[in-house]
């Protein structure tokens, strides 16, 4: 796993200028934030507050209108498009709310999807996939298709895919949002387990119970950070 001294978001603003609209929509307003290695940070806020936009900005997928995102001293948006793709592959793991698994690939293949572009032997990739599936408790379901897994299992598979590259930072956008309470808890337990093993996690959630499990809770409203709570 690459070591990240810190992830620093410096005065990030995001303005959407819709086609034909006279006025621009400011989704983020000078957001500044630091995430330390090994931290579990939850981002909370009402719908439309800019949580998901901030997550995609941190995820090097959504160029901010102003401000910088710096990882290991590198300005992420100063990189070329292709380098930014490499950055996403090497530094980040994404867990999406709808999981977005490839329905035509089995569990093991879905897990090793980020390895598809790497020059590794098929055996190495498979071993790595089995290790990560073991870690999330899906090793015995490696050959199943996503539609043959329960909601909780799909969530765990999405996490397996996010961490197979050993990324320094895992970004999760409401990973339990589409799950019932029991399966949501099941997925959260995987995150807690990962974090306990040193994985840095930045998670967007609506669920205060999930947020309470994090080291730090950041509340965002109308694109601004309005509150920050630390554990204990």
């Amino acid at each position: 796993m690459k070591k990240v001294s810190f992830l620093k978001i410096e005065k990030v603003s995001k303005v959407y200028q819709e086609n034909g609209a006279e006025s621009a929509v400011r989704v983020l307003e000078e957001v500044s934030l630091e995430i330390k290695e090994g931290e579990f940070v939850c981002l909370m806020g009402p719908s439309g507050s800019g949580k998901s936009t901030l997550l995609t900005v941190v995820g090097a997928m959504n160029r901010p209108s102003e401000g910088r995102v710096v990882v290991d001293g590198i300005d992420v948006y100063g990189l070329s498009d292709e380098k930014r793709a490499d950055y996403r592959r090497e530094y980040l793991g994404f867990v999406f709310q709808q999981h977005h698994l490839m329905p035509y690939l089995n569990t093991a293949e879905n897990a090793m999807l980020p390895l598809a572009t790497l020059k590794m032997s098929a055996k190495e990739k498979r071993n790595q996939a089995m290790m990560v599936l073991e870690r999330v408790g899906l090793a015995d379901k490696a050959l199943r298709l996503p539609n043959q897994l329960s909601g909780g299992e799909q969530g765990r598979l999405a996490i397996a895919r996010a961490i197979i590259n050993h990324p320094p930072l895992v970004l999760a956008d409401e990973p339990t949002g589409a799950l019932d309470t029991r399966t949501g808890r099941e997925v959260m337990e995987v995150f807690l387990d990962l974090n306990a093993q040193g994985q840095t996690i930045f998670m967007v959630t609506h669920n205060p119970d999930n947020a309470a499990l994090a080291h730090r809770i950041i509340n965002i409203c109308d694109g601004r950070i309005v509150d920050e709570m630390k554990e204990g």
Binding site: M61, E82, A116
Partner: peptide, 16 residues
């Protein structure tokens, strides 16, 4: 689009 977006998000280059 969604599938390509996910692949790009997990680090696939344009060339990939």
């Amino acid at each position: 689009t969604k599938e390509i977006g996910v692949l790009r998000a997990i680090g696939f280059r344009k060339a990939h």
